[in-house]
Amino acid sequence: MNAVALVKQVPDRNSAFRPAGDWIDESSLGYGINDYDRYAVEAALALKEAGHAAETVAVTAGPADAGQVLRSCLAMGVDRGVHLVTDRAHLADPFFVARALAGAVSGLDAGVVFAGLLAEDSGHGQVGGLVAGLLGFSFASAATGLQFRDGRLEAHRELEGGRIAVVELRLPAVVAVQTGINTPRYASLRGIMASRRKPVERVELAAPADGGGLRRLTLGRPERGASAEILPGSPQEAAAALVPRMRAGAGVSFPGDTA
């Protein structure tokens, strides 16, 4: 039984994003692994280290340069990668992506499949669950804790209002992990060296058929009702202008105020 992590390549969080057409302008962006997926990779590695998985496999669907995120998974310690090669534009439909991932996962003898709760770019937050639904696996989302006992997986799910649901899942299962479920390791130099010899299987995906799950129509900046007054000038001027506004707006006095 293997531990699988589903990972996505997303634009660097700190890039300046500009809406363009039905998506963002992608002409000058850096890319990296989706933050949530680092936790999924760590969960897969931990499962193997605890003796509950024979092998760890990372799977991604994305364009040729998305192989980069598989390399970073291998450098963290994942044993091998599967790259489902497709145009970046085809990632618009979570159903297309999930069907491709489910096809790959079905050949991996997966016991537990970890996915990030959501991708930072599209934020659909369902690819893990769709894969579970398509394969008939068990599913738990928003996991902040995991325990393995007697061939069953116990997942702690984060609910609202500071509550936790403990659910028991039959295997095979898909678990969509929340950030903070573990502390993702960084790749060591040795890990990076070793990753070069690890295998990545590349599979070319056929273009999506008509219909499908979702289509992008538009992307734009939200209308903001009452937006902040942006203080002009140099940082010094803005800082100086801020203080009287804070005092008046908040109606508080500060420790240094003379009584």
Binding site: F95, Q126, G128, L214
Partner: peptide
């Protein structure tokens, strides 16, 4: 919410779509 995140993809997958 956490209920919808669990249930919506399972329902959508069975209907052959995404949520």
């Amino acid at each position: 919410d956490p209920v919808g995140w669990d249930v919506a993809p399972l329902v959508a997958a069975r209907l052959g779509t995404a949520a």
